[in-house]
Design a protein around this nucleic acid. Structure first.
Lengths: 153, 153
DNA sequence: ATATGTGCAAATTCTTTGCATTAGA
DNA sequence: TCTAATGCAAAGAATTTGCACATAT
């Protein structure tokens, strides 16, 4: 049914596949494959990066775009934006909210488990907003790149 | 020299024009006009939105892009990203750090004077990062759109 | 059986680049 | 004067759309 690489879905992935069904989304090869990539590899990834990580023939790039949009709409994955004009997606591990530190130079991404935006969300809530979400990304120069830069000049 | 609309720069704009000179950027019509728009109108605006607000003939769209990039590099304006695949810019009023609440439906933008990311920046600093900045945007459905939506269905 | 999902080609949107011309310092 | 800035045309990258065909439920 499924090829070797797809054959050992982790618990997370299996749960996500089931979630597909209850989201009135059909469980297709493209969706299984893309969830598998996002759940098992350390992202976040752009559409092209996801596509490159898919086993050959799972689906084409257009379907990757469509699938990412669909999965995000039902909340199985999350979209983030590192300010370099493409969207990135990562598996949504539920309540475990986190953020990223992106090195402006080498583009390395580090995860931070601290979320500080609750106060802001409460404020928005008091102002009458509903369905509140937020994006928060930290940009900086990592210690390695700072070092390299010094020796440049 | 300058046409009527450009003739009454506010104090902020004049300061910004002066700042251009000390940033090794030449003071041109395009730069004066774009700073004027961003300082006097409530943004943030995309490149196209800035261009549309410019008096006719100030510069073309390509120059608007180039100018926005240049002004951001010297810190006179700030770039933000509302997740709809285009960058937006706003006048940088200095230390007065703020964020936005963007309605996902009507795209209305409200400003919030509360910044909560200090803890996160300190954490990054402890991890060896330098030149730390962040982006933080809140997305939600505003009370008006929530109301409208109810009557839809 | 039938609505949903997919592939392919082509279109759109946002942004950047090349190069000859213009204009600040 | 002489380098930096601009306009125009064209290229490039990310993403979306249209439509015939394939597939999950």
């Amino acid at each position: 049914m499924v090829s070797p690489k797809e054959a050992q879905p982790s618990r997370d992935v299996e749960l996500a596949w089931n979630a597909l069904a209850s989201s009135r989304l059909r469980v297709t090869r493209a969706r299984r494959g893309i969830l598998q990539v996002l759940a098992s590899q350390h992202g976040p990834f752009s559409a092209v990066e996801v596509f490159e990580r898919l086993e050959k023939g799972v689906c084409d790039l257009v379907t990757t775009y469509r699938t990412l949009t669909a999965l995000e709409e039902v909340g199985l994955i999350r979209r983030c934006d590192f300010g370099d004009s493409c969207y990135r997606y990562e598996f949504n591990t539920g309540e475990h909210h986190h953020h990223h530190i992106i090195c402006r130079k080498c583009r390395k991404v580090e995860t931070v488990d601290l979320c500080v935006a609750d106060a802001l969300e409460r404020l928005a809530s008091r102002r009458g907003y509903r369905e509140i979400t937020h994006t928060l990304e930290v940009f900086a120069i990592c210690s390695q790149c700072a070092k390299d830069h010094k020796s440049d000049e």
